[in-house]
Amino acid sequence: MGNATALRRNARGLPLWGRLALHTVLIAGSGLMLLPFLVMLLVSLMPKEVILTRAYRLELVSLQNYFETFRVVPFGRFYLNSVIVATSTTVLQILIASLAAFAFARLRFRGRDALFLLYLTTLMIPFQVTMIPNFVIIRYLAWYNTYQALILPSAFSVFSTFLMRQYFLTLPMDLDEAARMDGAGSWRIWAQIILPLSGPIVATLAIFNFQGSWNDFLWPLVITNTPSMRTIPVGLAAFQGQYNTEWHLLMAGSVVALLPVLILYIIGQNWFVRGITLSGMGGR
């Protein structure tokens, strides 16, 4: 036993110089990773003239650029749009996916496996293939430049359905059967047994999809054309195209754009990592 722990320490623990070297490299790497964030914050707090002279001084810090950014571009509106779109997409996606996953994992019906296979097959098709017809359909429905157009196509996700089904399959079937014996129908089993037991997967998908929707770029870019419907990333890109030398404003806009996801990330960083690992491992 003592031998085993000694071995373990030998195999795992590094000598002091090794640990120091590792920390040096990791800290340098962290600096590189954080540099863009720090530069963004610094420039956003400095007056315009300082950028060319590089005479950054602590006394010059002010929120002036933020006020001006909100004055020249409708950032408040972008924010509102992003909050509406990301929240509704996430809620709808989880609701729709959990209903479908419940049917796939807990109910038996004709054609279940064939349908599920068809769902999975479409995971291979890149978004770019369906993007143009989706654009045509949205225009046909007269939804161009509306919230429906931003929300509904992403409210349905094969991938979320797949991950939820995999999770539901791990819950014992006896639960359903006991509930049915007690007279509960499928809806009650879904709402009062399966969903309450699925906290981890729901939280993971929620945080992961919210982040994905918040940062989504290509679809909001093609389906909106007025500032009043732009989400944060698309609004920021348009702002960048328009004010491409006004670094002090662009940096303030970038900080504003990043803040919500970064706060969400710092609070729920374990869920983020879980979401990534989960999707990375195909739900295993």
Binding site: Q211, F217, L250, A257
Partner: peptide, 21 residues
């Protein structure tokens, strides 16, 4: 936390800083 931070950021904001850098 630090190394993963860029993964959750909006690419456009990252691009603006990189243009600057």
């Amino acid at each position: 936390v630090i190394y993963f931070m860029p993964v959750v950021t909006t690419i456009v904001a990252g691009a603006i800083v990189f243009q600057f850098l």
